[in-house]
Write a protein that binds this DNA or RNA. Structure first.
Lengths: 340, 340
DNA sequence: AATCAATTTTAAAACGCTTTGGATCCCAAT
DNA sequence: ATTGGGATCCAAAGCGTTTTAAAATTGATT
């Protein structure tokens, strides 16, 4: 059943039927009811392909998530997208998922911009000196970045958490507890968020006149296995750390395993602070949270990013918009004073 | 730049330009080259909204993933989708992600079917007696299910792993190692896969004349926290298990934590077998895998499911197609003979 | 030079909506 | 009776492609 058939059925023009369904004012209330009734009776729904051509809007947002060589799908993306999806469904949008291999990235973005299957995109995992930002500005496609690129001083819309501040505060707490050998297990430092976190860590050490030690800093995809390997390696160091600062819950699970394997007890022998994205499958709470953590819900970030983008699409004059989320440090069972 | 402008530029009709770009045979090779050159020079790409209306194909596949009340995004979905996405990009398709709250499910599927923004869908997480299958058959939208519904005897396309067989074999190994008190930490038994796994577990117990004990069976979302809670609870039982059979890696991380907290050693004091979906962020390998596991790559399943659906869309006569993936049992460090 | 077939190109219809620019109807005001 | 103006409805254009049906061109054959 399409609009034409429905309008014939009703003895009305397509115009009137279309207007009735779209709640335009210039149609008699009685006819509107009649039309709506018939539409739902015949299970009519406007063909999205036609609507999109006619209106020039795709009513779809693209999420482009970079796939590096190891082709890893980070659970954080899933959670962010679940949040965004809530905002979209509230406002009648759909979500197009695009996994871009890094080597073909530029052409993928160009294609997205010119073929018109989305009205805007959300960019994930910005890198340091990320060429995508300039590209997107040039292409004129509305976009919001989850994160920032500190090396790019131009104006663009983003939502981010206060990475530097969070890791500064976490490091400071560990130092206050007497730790001086603090091992940083960080995300991939090609990515901007990881750089900001590292800066927070280093700034805190410097403020407290503790010299940083390159042997106590790891960077890489935050998988369980990588967390384990890094922590195991660190614990074997002649000058082993008494505390870990870990950039994700998942990575921390590996760290926890390494600590146990070394015969140590988390919270007493060794302190751990993590950043907790509040993933649904990895809840860090209970009476006392397992891990002391800086917290910021990535699902919430997804929802807010989506709303921001939709606002920009509705009123492009609004851009650029920015939002900085807090990541408060909350105490759990994994920290304690350094053991003498 | 649109087709009309481009064709004027070239002094050709839209027809010819369109045909040249789409590699139709009835256009002179010289003109084709000329057209393609001009197209790429002007960065022309056909407007997807128009193409979709004209061809009647959305060139898009929908993935509908159910969101239950707790609104949890299972990392397994992400991995499956990453696999599917590879197949789509090879064949020029896009991926539309749809998170359906369970209460509105029927209307969501109806809407998807009638509005035409996808050519087919992949259905995730089939339940026992899942009403979606009949609904989709009725709606006539091509679909493939990741999993099956054993209670539905009609014909439909699916891809699944051999859940019963995998858990039968795993249970059998534990029994062969002397374990009789084996605790099952299963997925949500509203879901079909969990029911099949339980059946495998129960069948093996029965075949070996070991009586099942309801106190040693848990079912729920396989989060780290739930795995921990279930295992902790089981270990406190007066008749505590000597082995765990856990339906996911993530759940097993919680089980591992519970075992450590109880002061026990995995692999010697307590055996654990998991099902390993081979998630990128949770690699279970190395010289000796951490966990003894039944293995089946869910990313691979995603890719195969996608290919299957595209094949069906190209040739609807092919359906229904079915594919049963093996999940071989591979030995890791988490199993050993029962301690007397 | 005429004929025919194959090759190459084109004009126009179609896809199913929205939206523009009128048309028609009805009623109150002149 | 005429006019004016809302309220209500409609025919047709437009969105940017693909595809159908037909026209024009070419080249070989007689």
């Amino acid at each position: 059943m399409n609009l034409k058939q429905l309008s014939i059925q009703l003895g009305l023009s397509q115009t009137t039927v279309s207007r009735a369904l779209n709640n335009y004012p210039e149609v008699n209330e009685h006819t509107r009811q009649r039309v709506k009734l018939a539409a739902s009776k015949h299970n009519y729904r406007p063909n999205a392909r036609a609507t999109r051509l006619a209106t020039g809007r795709a009513m779809t947002i693209g999420h482009v998530i970079p796939m590096n060589s190891s082709e890893v799908f980070n659970p954080i993306f899933g959670e962010f997208i679940a949040g965004a999806s809530q905002a979209y469904s509230r406002r009648g949008y759909e979500l197009l998922l695009n996994m871009a291999k890094e080597d073909a990235e530029e052409s993928i973005y160009r294609e997205i911009a010119s073929k018109g299957s989305v009205d805007g995109i959300i960019v994930h995992a910005p890198r340091v000196n990320d060429s995508r930002i300039t590209l997107l500005q040039e292409l004129g496609l509305p976009f919001v970045i989850h994160g920032r690129d500190s090396s790019n001083s131009s104006e663009y819309s983003w939502i981010d958490m206060n990475n530097r501040q969070a890791f500064y505060q976490a490091t400071k707490l560990l130092i206050d507890l007497g730790h001086t050998k603090i091992c940083l297990i960080n995300g991939d430092e090609k990515l901007n968020f990881a750089v900001r976190r590292k800066k927070g860590y280093l700034d805190a050490l410097e403020d407290e006149k503790i010299s940083a030690n390159a042997d106590l800093m790891y960077s890489g995809d935050l998988t369980e296995a990588n967390g384990y390997t890094a922590a195991t390696h660190a614990l074997k160091h002649r000058n082993a750390p008494t505390a870990f600062l870990v950039a994700s819950y998942v990575g921390a699970l590996g760290v926890r395993r390494a600590i146990h394997n070394a015969g140590l007890e988390m919270g007493s022998d060794i302190s751990v602070i993590i950043h907790d994205d509040e993933l649904a499958y990895f809840h860090n709470d209970g009476d006392i949270a397992q891990f002391t953590a800086t917290r910021s819900s990535v699902k919430d970030a997804g929802e807010r990013a989506a709303m921001m983008l939709l606002d920009i699409i509705d009123d492009p004059g609004k851009a650029p918009l920015n939002e900085l989320l807090k990541a408060p440090l909350t105490l759990g069972a994994s920290t304690g004073p350094v053991k003498k």
